[in-house]
Design a protein around this nucleic acid. Sequence first.
DNA 1: AGGATGCTTCGCCCGACGACGAACGATCGC
DNA 2: GCGATCGTTCGTCGTCGGGCGAAGCATCCT
Lengths: 223, 223
Amino acid sequence: MDGDADLASPARLMGEPARAAMLVALLDGRALPAGELAAIARVSAPTASAHLARLVEGGLVRARALGRHRYFELAGADVADAIESLQRLAPRRPVTSYGQSATARRLAEARTCYDHLAGRIALGIADALVAEEAITPLEAGGSGMILATDGPVARRLRLEAAPAPGRRPPVRGCLDWTERRPHLAGALGAHVLEVLLSAGWVARVPGDRSLRVSDELRVAFES
Amino acid sequence: MDGDADLASPARLMGEPARAAMLVALLDGRALPAGELAAIARVSAPTASAHLARLVEGGLVRARALGRHRYFELAGADVADAIESLQRLAPRRPVTSYGQSATARRLAEARTCYDHLAGRIALGIADALVAEEAITPLEAGGSGMILATDGPVARRLRLEAAPAPGRRPPVRGCLDWTERRPHLAGALGAHVLEVLLSAGWVARVPGDRSLRVSDELRVAFES
DNA sequence: AGGATGCTTCGCCCGACGACGAACGATCGC
DNA sequence: GCGATCGTTCGTCGTCGGGCGAAGCATCCT
């Protein structure tokens, strides 16, 4: 019968609200301890433990024991890709005009997406880099290259210090689900987020994927 | 709480074996009547009907009434993308050394993947097109371009008759789950499959995604 | 050592959902 | 028109799986 890959089992793992919440929380690429994931998913510790065990069993999540904590993280970029491609499917239903809650507004302005930056600010930065021809134009899912690192924006973002290309494509377009346009992902996307964080231009908001944006950065890139 | 797209609901829809089987059956892009989908999923007609109603409700599948039949098809390319990205996740578990059943062998040689060609033959064709620089090199998920249509392989596949670029990228890399390398998808991928079918170089096998390959094509492209 | 903290296992309850048979519309063929 | 076919809706059953509290280990702190 099947010579086909089993679609149902990973989907089933993602199809439970508590597990989905955990996976989304891990989308920013960091590892979180079980207790925190339980709080995020709003379930008790035993329930969370059971869910996490199934996620590990299914190969979506990796566990790392550190002291008396167990840190969980996504098992790989392909898992993150799958989650994002499903999220891209979701908005068909609600078509919720966001801008409602304060968090939604913050998420729409700036947030992390796996290990890079997303939201309006991310689009502003990507547009500026494309405009000064520092990178090739972005297309959703497609990959591009770094063209030059001596433009004004490229200098401010320290593109010259970007990691040498490895397995990962340097420039990737990642479809932004609030703006429906691709923002900068890939190795360079991760590098830019790191630069912004260490320069204090953005800061993580605890318990959230949204990012606090400095005024300096906002006036420069908010569209 | 959420400013996040709802990951769980589409995943839940795909996470049920019967529904997953239906979705996979629709991956080749064609529309199938409810009865056939029921047979494929090995469930009774009422059960299939309920599943299909939920898939339509969730926006994954579109229904088209034709006579006394109702034909169902995937709602869009993004749905197919999500299904494929989940399938890519699945093989983590079994690591089944295929080549077991006859169908698995046939699927590994040539099959349809949504609306284009997949399997060893597809990789052979893609490699040949890249080698003669008819298209840009493929990368999984990335998109490329048509470079020239006058090479020997490009002529045989009538690349010059490929549809003008529309919303869809002309060349896309689609990760082949049997070979773990990207094969040719996108508008050109669909065009090539059409050419091969109408020339009789491949033929659909009823009730299956595998394709019968003519000897002529096999000696030319089987790696 | 002893208590606190973090996570897991166990046992149980309950609701949700998938499965089917039977009955009901709708459409086609003749 | 009349049976035949296709698909749906309805009612019912069984089970799978998610939820929690209590108890059990492990690790850390002092």
